[in-house]
């Protein structure tokens, strides 16, 4: 019998395998069509802000510009980026005929999911950060360095949280993951996130809005009726909430994927 290397340190081996998947998935994303799509995503917020400035015959007030950029980058760009990178995590393997190769590796399924999630976060996060930098060169936001740092942090949280959220449709409905994820984004994030009740506590969007308000010191500037849409708790609570959400969602997705069985006809 052969000596096998991963008899011990299963967690370390899982992380190494997940990292291998991340590298492989990022390599798959490095194609001209994908790069062109990423470039469009990176330029889009700056283009929109220029168009708005032109339509308004002048620059937007800095705070309004920040809110607009927030809607465009950590919300729209991150969501769209994750939809095209995270949703096909399993479907791509089935279509490319690579699923049996991955599923027959020790811990291959969970490495695939975790690695794909990390790749989606890195790819989308990079696009969103480049979009932020480009947008800040054409928009007056008052404190560009502070706003830039806040947006980088919000982008990271948005990608991690939404990526984990889209992991669920990716493993439950691989072939309809995109449609299911759009529905989940609209209902779970956009709708539930704006309902001022317990339900919005489980959404990433509430955490992001609250952190934006806190980190930019807007607590007193927010109109009374808008206070309903943010959570006044300290940033550490929001960061912990996102971390818990990511952990719970990814764990659930891993558990589901570990139990998924795809009949031979589902491949290709």
């Amino acid at each position: 019998m052969t000596a096998h290397v991963d008899a011990g340190a299963p967690v370390r081996r899982l992380l190494a395998a997940s990292w291998a998947v991340t590298g492989f998935q990022l390599g798959r994303l490095l194609t001209w069509p994908r790069l062109a799509m990423a470039a469009v995503g990176a330029v889009f917020p700056a283009a929109v802000m220029l168009a708005v400035r032109r339509a308004a015959h002048g620059p937007l007030p800095p705070d309004l510009a920040v809110v607009t950029l927030y809607a465009l980058i950590p919300e729209a760009i991150c969501m769209l980026g994750l939809l095209v990178t995270m949703c096909p995590a399993v479907a791509d393997e089935l279509e490319r005929g690579t699923w049996p190769h991955v599923a027959t590796r020790p811990r291959g399924r969970r490495a695939l999911l975790l690695g794909s999630w990390l790749a989606a976060v890195i790819w989308t996060g990079t696009v969103a950060i480049v979009a932020t930098l480009l947008a800040l060169t054409v928009v007056d936001v008052g404190r560009p360095v502070v706003v830039g740092c806040v947006f980088v942090a919000l982008t990271a949280l948005s990608c991690a949280g939404r990526g984990a959220l889209f992991a669920l449709p990716a493993v439950i409905l691989p072939k309809r993951a995109l449609v299911a994820s759009v529905g989940l984004a609209l209902v779970g994030e956009c709708l539930a996130g704006t309902i001022p009740a317990v339900v919005n506590q489980g959404t990433v969007s509430l955490r992001l809005r609250s952190l934006l308000v806190h980190w930019l010191g807007w607590r007193d500037k927010v109109p009374a009726e808008m206070q309903l849409f943010i959570d006044p708790q300290p940033p550490a609570v929001h960061l912990a909430a996102v971390a818990i959400l990511v952990t719970v969602l990814l764990t659930a997705a891993v558990v589901i994927l570990e139990r998924r069985q795809f009949p031979p006809g589902d491949e290709l």
């Binding site: 190494a16 291998a20 798959r28 490319r96 690579t98 049996p100 190769h101 590796r105």
Partner: peptide
């Protein structure tokens, strides 16, 4: 497996290395 490899942009070396890394 019986299914053909349709991940065609990668190379055999890259693909096999990836699988071996997945094996631990």
């Amino acid at each position: 497996p019986v299914a053909d490899l349709l991940d065609r942009t990668t190379t055999p070396l890259h693909w096999v290395t990836y699988l071996v890394r997945l094996a631990g």
